[in-house]
């Protein structure tokens, strides 16, 4: 007779596992990857590959030779970090900056805290912000999209992002109408589909939203975080637009430019560094939305979502402590 196993209940397990979750995220990123390849061609492929491979490599090296523990690079978390990191950089970024970014992402932001599940900050964003501060020139010279099947253009052509244009314009004392009239400002449709200058993954709001809906459907992320960020940005920017449309641009512009969609859907929802409870997720989302707009409107940088998410990441333990799920049978008892 074989030996029976003894363990506590439950004796069955659902179908979820870490790998599945991570590869669902990768799958959700596919539309955005395709769009970026469409607009930036081989450059996009190059940046994506370098980022993913170097993230995997550093995770492997650190787990194998520094921690000397089990190697878990196949769980997909490094792939996700690499893809998100690549999404945050311009397509013409020199390869060595990308590698340094990957090292910071994996080495400092992830493994130094103990690896998957322990990092307080979103690793890809830490890497991105590190690169942005260390290599501001390379990180902010975005190539103009050169669609895959169009006649190839030289790499030298770079253009500012829509947000960059806005910031520069406002600094130069122009009003909104004048800025929008600038020929290099992308049209609304272009902003939606991604035909504008910018980082790889920030391009197409539509592709990102498709991926986001897919993840919500597969229950990898909750709708509360992206929705609350987008809502806050819309409302907050809308209020200022109503107060003075001369200086403050309309809220829809804010929604579809820069990294907002990418940040709201993929970065802020990172399981490890976002709050655990629904009420906390609202607080977190609203906080990110507010800080983003504050940085965009009055800060030194044209884009603020990365900083906003990192700042709110730091508040997550506090949010988890303060915002609990509604306990069953504690309040609102209908008698």
């Amino acid at each position: 007779m074989s030996q029976f196993t003894i363990s506590g209940s439950p004796h069955v397990h659902g179908e979820e596992n870490v790998k599945k979750i991570m590869y669902t995220v990768v799958l959700a990123l596919v539309p955005a990857i395709l769009v970026s390849i469409y607009f930036f061609g081989i450059d996009a492929v190059r940046v994506l590959l370098i980022a993913v491979i170097s993230c995997l490599f550093f995770e492997w090296v650190i787990q194998k030779y520094l921690i000397k523990g089990p190697v878990t690079i196949t769980d997909g978390s490094a792939v996700v970090a690499g893809l998100l990191l690549a999404f945050n950089v311009p397509a013409n970024l020199p390869w060595w900056i990308m590698v340094i970014g990957a090292l910071v992402t994996i080495g400092i932001a992830k493994m130094s805290f103990g690896g998957l599940g322990k990092n307080p900050f979103n690793p890809a964003l830490v890497g991105r912000v590190f690169m942005l501060i260390s290599f501001p020139v390379q990180m902010t010279s975005w190539p103009v999209p050169k669609p895959l099947f169009a006649n190839s253009l030289t790499d030298a052509i770079t253009g500012p992002t829509a947000l960059g244009l806005l910031k520069e314009g406002l600094d130069a004392g122009k009003n909104i109408d004048q800025i929008l009239a600038d020929p290099s400002m992308p049209a609304y449709l272009d902003r939606l589909t991604g035909n504008m200058s910018g980082s790889l993954g920030e391009m197409s709001a539509i592709a990102l939203i498709i991926g986001g809906l897919f993840m919500i459907w597969r229950k990898v992320i909750d709708w509360q975080v992206p929705f609350s960020i987008i809502l806050t940005v819309f409302v907050f920017a809308g209020i200022f637009h109503l107060i003075d449309p001369e200086i403050y641009i309309d809220p829809v512009f804010h929604l579809f430019t820069g990294g907002l969609m990418l940040g709201a859907i993929y970065m802020a929802t990172d399981m490890v560094s976002s709050p655990m409870n629904i009420s906390g997720k609202w607080v977190y989302g609203i906080g990110i939305g507010l800080i983003t707009i504050i940085i965009r409107m009055w800060g030194a940088y044209p884009e603020g979502i990365s900083f906003a998410i990192l700042i709110m990441n730091a508040f997550v333990p506090l949010i988890n402590y303060g915002f609990k799920p509604r306990r069953f049978g504690l309040v609102g008892n209908k008698k």
């Binding site: 363990s7 004796h11 397990h13 599940g117 399981m271 409870n277 799920p325 306990r327 069953f328 049978g329």
Partner: peptide
Amino acid sequence: NEESKRGVPQTCIRCSKCTLACPMGLEPFL
């Protein structure tokens, strides 16, 4: 046999699925 073994435990990735699944509104991970 194949049903009776548990999966290998990994680190918590703080996905909060346990919190959502708890019918009593508790935080099992915590």
